[in-house]
Computed example of a mutant assay.
Amino acid sequence: MDLHLAGKRALICGGSSGLGRAVAEALAAEGAHVALLSRDAAKLQVVADGINATATAKAVIVTADLADHASLLAAVDTAEGLLGGPTEILLNNTGGPPPSGVAGLDPELWRTQFEAMVLSVFRLTDRVLPGMKAAGWGRILNVASSSVVEPIANLGVSTALRSSVAGWAKTLSIEVAADGITVNTLLPGRIDTPRIESLDKATAERRGVTPAEARAESIKTIPVGRIGTTEEFGAVAAFLASPKAAYVTGSLIRIDGGAIRAI
């Protein structure tokens, strides 16, 4: 299926690895030009080189700290200059906090994580929206977590902050629908990324088992019987970023192998 993404310009947060990298590669395979953003220039360059070697689309890199407002907005300016025009597809994708509950946490931890995980998403989106509105077309995708629908034990901070992004995204989708802009939130379950590996290690330490045993136990909770691949995640994101998904907006899209038990 041709997703009609050739020549579109995408800004991919967290593009150096994991889910962000997968989305960038999926979009580039469809002909979209991608600007990869994270703090690690070396890792970004590896991904960009791989895309440029195999795809007809162009990949460029920009570095920024999501919690640093000035550097973030400057990075968008640089990305749009390198790609030759306003951002048409934005993937909001932030790192997750350390595992924890929510009771008794230092307010500074909440403030720091809110800045990086929530406020950066608001700022980035507000920065690119005028260009999308002027063009009468845009796609905003937010990477959240299955915990938005079904909270996950020991991921309290992540659940709280990603849920706030989901609420904001639903509201925004209503505000910009008439401008030809869709806003959707992706809810990954257990996808094979470095983040899942780190969570398995934390679970193993807490339970006194090996990481492999912790992973095996988690797989038992997934109806399809395995962990998802980043390529599967990227494929869903690419469709939602395409003109073919114009009637899908304000949605929470589960990519979890059926693990969420709620209807």
Rank of each mutant, 00 (worst) to 15 (best):
D2T: 03
A6D: 14
A10G: 01
L11I: 01
G15N: 03
S16V: 02
S16N: 13
S17P: 00
A22T: 04
L27A: 09
A28S: 10
V34N: 00
A35G: 08
D40A: 12
D40Q: 14
D40G: 09
V47I: 06
V47C: 09
A48H: 00
D49Q: 14
N52H: 07
A53I: 08
A53F: 06
T54G: 10
A55C: 15
K58T: 15
A59P: 08
A64N: 07
A67G: 14
D68I: 11
L73S: 14
A74H: 12
D77E: 15
A79G: 08
N93A: 05
G95K: 10
P99Y: 05
G101P: 02
P107W: 03
S120A: 14
R123N: 12
R123G: 05
T125H: 00
D126W: 13
A134Y: 08
A134S: 14
G138W: 00
S145G: 08
S145Q: 09
S147E: 08
V149D: 11
I152L: 12
A153N: 15
T159R: 10
T159Y: 12
T171V: 13
V176W: 06
T182D: 01
V183Q: 04
N184D: 11
T185D: 02
T185I: 02
L186V: 07
R190E: 10
D192P: 07
D192Q: 12
R195K: 07
T203C: 06
A204E: 02
E205I: 10
S218W: 11
I219M: 08
I227L: 11
T229M: 04
T230D: 05
F233P: 01
A238S: 05
S242K: 01
K244T: 10
L252F: 12
A262I: 15
A262M: 15
